[in-house]
Simulated assay, not measured.
Amino acid sequence: MKILVAGATGFVGRRLVRALHDQNHDVIAFSRSASEAGFPSGVEPFEGDFGDPASLEGMCDDVDVAYYLIHSLTAENFAELDRTYARRFRQRASTAGVDRVIYLSGISGNERDLSPHLASRREVEAVLEGGEYELTVLRAAVIIGRGSASFRIVDDLTDRLPLMVVPTWVRTPGNPIAVDDAVRYLVRLLSVPETRGKIFDIGGPSVLSYEELLRMTANVKNKRVLIIPVPVLTPELSSHWLRLTTDVQYRIARPLAKSMRHPVTVDDDRDLQNVVPIDQTPIKTAINQALTVN
């Protein structure tokens, strides 16, 4: 099967390219820096930029399945860019006759009062849905792994703040998932026809609040933390608070902070585990791996 991974040098994309290659698929790895990425032998790098339509020519030629992993959180106008890029991808995938597109999105709780970040994810889903292919959407909870911006925030906090006066969103529940499990779902759904044209949630085996995730991460690092949630830190204020407490780029940390007030638990009716069962990684194991894998 010929498979395109758009966003192949990202946190999930790089791992997905390797996993698909290991399954003997013909993989095209699309990225602005594809030629410098050092993909496994046999992977075809395709260097392009969704901001430059001319560079996209031929991207989807003869492609059977395309994974769309493009997100623009580092840009101030990320929602506008993501909308434009999704439209450009939809047009090229439709024209080229791509059979199936898979988009990695995010869980957003009750779908009301969405943060700009999560609202943009929903808008991209809607844009991609209009293409001439079957769309599968996976909405993920917080993904744990080295390179994850969300987990890096947790890691930085446990390193720097033995006493944390934190926003009340630390008590928001979620189903964090190991990055290897997210990739495993993305690969295995290819062989499950029931996943075509549908939306699924993916998460790990445990429901944890951010506070519990912070404590578990600190415990893995043999650190002690005292966490005091306070109601005065609004989403806007807490995004500025993160600017002082993490090395994650502020343009990334800010929209993530505004999203953290939403529960990110898997909906039982949309749980991909019911259709594509895998041996899910315990969260403590995922944290250990994220802290130790180079």
Rank of each mutant, 00 (worst) to 15 (best):
residue 89 F to P: 07
residue 186 L to M: 15
residue 164 M to S: 07
residue 263 P to K: 08
residue 251 R to I: 14
residue 64 D to Y: 12
residue 252 I to E: 02
residue 157 L to V: 09
residue 273 Q to G: 11
residue 49 D to P: 04
residue 250 Y to H: 13
residue 189 L to H: 05
residue 6 A to P: 08
residue 58 G to M: 11
residue 223 K to Q: 11
residue 44 E to D: 06
residue 203 G to M: 01
residue 154 V to C: 12
residue 97 G to H: 05
residue 216 M to D: 03
residue 237 L to N: 10
residue 33 S to F: 08
residue 221 K to P: 03
residue 103 Y to L: 05
residue 57 E to D: 14
residue 130 G to W: 06
residue 39 F to N: 03
residue 1 M to D: 10
residue 4 L to M: 12
residue 110 N to E: 02
residue 115 S to I: 15
residue 215 R to Q: 14
residue 183 V to T: 07
residue 58 G to E: 11
residue 157 L to T: 05
residue 218 A to D: 10
residue 278 I to T: 14
residue 110 N to R: 12
residue 230 V to K: 09
residue 291 L to P: 01
residue 28 I to Y: 02
residue 150 S to T: 08
residue 291 L to G: 04
residue 182 A to H: 06
residue 223 K to A: 08
residue 230 V to G: 09
residue 37 A to C: 05
residue 37 A to P: 02
residue 103 Y to E: 07
residue 69 L to H: 04
residue 78 F to Y: 05
residue 104 L to T: 11
residue 34 A to F: 01
residue 62 D to G: 08
residue 290 A to L: 02
residue 25 H to I: 03
residue 200 F to T: 02
residue 227 I to F: 12
residue 73 L to R: 05
residue 67 Y to P: 07
residue 285 T to C: 01
residue 98 V to M: 02
residue 206 S to R: 15
residue 279 D to K: 14
residue 155 D to H: 15
residue 67 Y to E: 13
residue 121 R to K: 15
residue 212 E to S: 11
residue 114 L to H: 06
residue 172 T to N: 10
residue 122 R to Q: 15
residue 227 I to K: 12
residue 155 D to R: 14
residue 249 Q to C: 11
residue 113 D to M: 12
residue 211 E to Q: 15
residue 55 S to R: 04
residue 191 S to V: 06
residue 292 T to F: 00
residue 102 I to W: 07
residue 200 F to Y: 09
residue 45 P to T: 00
residue 219 N to Y: 08
residue 86 A to V: 04
residue 257 A to N: 13
residue 255 P to W: 09
residue 239 S to A: 15
residue 173 P to I: 06
residue 257 A to E: 11
residue 144 I to V: 09
residue 82 D to E: 14
residue 14 R to V: 05
residue 73 L to Q: 10
residue 48 G to C: 03
residue 90 R to G: 09
residue 20 L to N: 04
residue 46 F to A: 00
residue 270 R to D: 13
residue 128 L to Y: 10
residue 99 D to Y: 04
residue 232 V to E: 04
residue 111 E to P: 03
residue 262 H to E: 00
residue 72 S to H: 03
residue 63 V to G: 01
residue 84 T to D: 04
residue 190 L to P: 00
residue 165 V to K: 10
residue 151 F to G: 01
